[in-house]
């Protein structure tokens, strides 16, 4: 779910240029919409919103009252980019156009729902949907990334021994600890799954491993303060990737998978973390 066509609403309610403002207002009221794309000869020529209607005589043609300079996007645009533009320019409705034809609409409510789906409700940090999009973006832009995967040791045992409420508290604590240690300019954190956290980082692998060390140490300290066992293992993966721009998604999946396997192996052999460097 990276492209606009995955979340846009379609088909779209529209109005034609020869309708009056009064007719447009009635139609919008009936639909409960705050705006409508305007179509002429099957092409998008404008958008009429409640504020256009407010300032226009009801007898006017839609053609004379619509906003003619329409910002639009294409179905294959990356949602991330489009949402950024919508937020920046306070756009409430963004038509989706393919070869001049209106094929969908992106509204603020769709975007809000989509953005909400990118957060983990327990920890309030992002979830894996976000991290996949972000990593895709970074790789497409030509950045080299490292992936760190943290995994709570014996989490099943913690849940059974101390209860699930305590288990949730551990997850929250870990999320807070990692959040405090990352640099928001180059490290991007998410709760990947149950007791797994992923950082996509612009750091080189060796620098990323330093971050891992500091997080592992902080969790140890937290465990001592809590008086209960809590520790994490980590896998770090990164390196040069040829032709990465062409298959960003596969690269991300591959990196996360390798980091996950490295974390499992680290746990198995009793290490705090393992590095996995691709060449």
């Amino acid at each position: 779910m990276f492209e606009v066509q995955d979340i846009m609403s379609s088909p779209v309610h529209t109005i034609s240029t020869e309708k009056s403002v009064f007719q447009a207002a009635s139609y919008m009221k009936k639909l409960g919409f705050g705006g409508l794309p305007v179509i002429d000869n099957e092409k998008l020529v404008g958008i009429i919103t409640s504020s256009d209607i407010y300032f226009s005589h009801p007898n006017r043609l839609v053609a004379d009252s619509m906003t003619k300079k329409v910002i639009y996007c294409s179905p294959a645009d990356i949602i991330w980019d489009v949402v950024t533009q919508m937020t920046k320019y306070n756009i409430k409705r963004l038509p989706v156009v393919n070869k001049g034809h209106l094929v969908g609409l992106l509204t603020k409510s769709i975007v809000t729902k989509y953005m909400g789906n990118q957060y983990d409700p327990l920890t309030s940090i992002h979830n894996s949907i976000y991290i996949y999009q972000l990593a895709n973006r970074l790789i497409t832009e030509g950045h080299e990334i490292s992936v760190i995967l943290f995994d709570i040791n014996n989490f099943g045992h913690i849940n059974k021994e101390y209860g699930h409420v305590y288990g949730d508290k551990c997850i929250k604590n870990i999320a807070e600890i990692i959040s405090k240690h990352i640099n928001n300019d180059c490290d991007f954190l998410c709760r990947y799954g149950g007791d797994e956290f992923v950082i996509v980082s612009l750091r080189k692998v060796n620098d990323a491993s330093k971050l891992v060390q500091s997080v592992v140490a902080a969790v140890k300290k937290e465990s001592i303060e809590m008086g209960k066992p809590l520790s994490i293992s980590a896998g770090v993966c990164g390196g040069q990737r040829k032709h990465a721009r062409k298959s960003a998604n596969k690269v991300i999946e591959n990196l996360i998978n390798k980091a996950s396997l490295a974390s499992t192996k680290a746990k198995r052999i009793g290490k705090e973390y393992l590095l996995c460097v691709d060449s």
Binding site: T17, E18, F55, S56, H57, N59, R60, L61, A63, D64, S65
Partner: peptide, 12 residues
């Protein structure tokens, strides 16, 4: 600018 008819209506 806020007349009962606009330029497009007059043009048509």
């Amino acid at each position: 600018r806020r007349a009962a008819i606009g330029p497009e209506a007059v043009r048509r």
